[in-house]
Computed example of a mutant assay.
Amino acid sequence: MIDLDDTDRAILRALSANAGLSAGALGRRLGLSQPAAWRRIRRLEDAGVLAGQRVVVDQAALGFGVTVFLGVKLATKGRVSLEDFERAVTAIPEVQVVQHVLGLFDYRLRVVARDIADFERILRRRILTLPGVGSVEANVLLSEERRPGPLGREPG
């Protein structure tokens, strides 16, 4: 684990909000030179704290207006391997996230669909036909708020 100072935390907050910031822009924002900002970013990358950049796609803008979280319980764990289920479910393009979890369900899926009728089609034709699926519970996303995470918000 790497020791983070206030400047490191400020860099992480700024990059979490806008991963496309250049070292120069980040330095100007935080009162650092471009080389100093670049060295700190590089140190955070080398330590594995920064693991990459992501593009956030607006699903609704692409016509996917419904997001559903599915809890999936496998029918018989011994009859189908987890790897077989995972391989099959990750091949479904509407399934955005597959999480193997501990608790009431074996898996948690994030599924996007154009509308409820489209989701029903995906559920009936693709998800319920996967190897080993026993029971499924659906929760439709009503709204989503981005949380700041463990770094907290910048004072101000």
Results as ranks from 00 to 15, higher is better:
L32E: 04
L32A: 03
Q34C: 09
Q34G: 08
P35W: 13
A36I: 05
A36V: 10
A36D: 09
A37Q: 05
A37V: 09
A37K: 05
W38T: 06
W38E: 12
R39Y: 14
R39M: 11
R39F: 11
R40F: 03
R40K: 09
R40I: 02
I41A: 03
I41T: 13
I41G: 03
R42M: 11
R42P: 06
R42Y: 12
R42S: 14
R42Q: 15
R42H: 14
L44H: 03
L44A: 02
E45M: 10
E45P: 05
E45K: 10
D46N: 08
D46L: 10
D46G: 05
A47Q: 04
A47G: 03
A47C: 02
A47W: 05
A47K: 00
G48E: 07
L50P: 01
L50Q: 04
A51V: 15
A51T: 15
Q53A: 15
Q53R: 15
R54Y: 03
R54G: 01
V55T: 08
V55L: 09
V56T: 08
V57L: 01
D58F: 12
D58P: 06
Q59P: 12
Q59E: 15
A61H: 10
L62T: 10
G63N: 09
G63R: 09
F64H: 12
F64Q: 11
F64E: 12
F64A: 13
G65E: 15
G65F: 13
G65Q: 13
G65S: 14
V66A: 14
V66G: 11
T67Q: 13
T67C: 09
F69V: 14
L70W: 10
L70P: 04
L70D: 04
L70H: 07
G71M: 10
G71Y: 02
G71Q: 13
V72W: 00
V72G: 00
V72T: 08
K73L: 11
K73A: 12
L74T: 12
A75E: 15
A75P: 02
A75M: 11
A75N: 14
A75W: 14
A75T: 10
T76S: 12
T76M: 06
K77V: 13
K77W: 14
G78D: 10
G78P: 01
G78K: 13
R79Y: 12
R79M: 07
R79Q: 11
V80S: 01
V80T: 08
S81Q: 00
L82Q: 12
L82I: 10
D84Q: 06
D84M: 03
D84R: 04
D84Y: 02
F85Y: 00
F85W: 02
F85V: 06
E86F: 02
E86M: 02
E86A: 00
R87Q: 03
R87D: 03
R87K: 08
R87S: 04
A88K: 01
V89R: 02
T90L: 01
T90W: 02
A91N: 03
I92Q: 06
I92K: 03
I92V: 15
I92L: 10
P93Q: 09
P93K: 07
E94C: 13
E94R: 11
V95E: 07
V95Q: 08
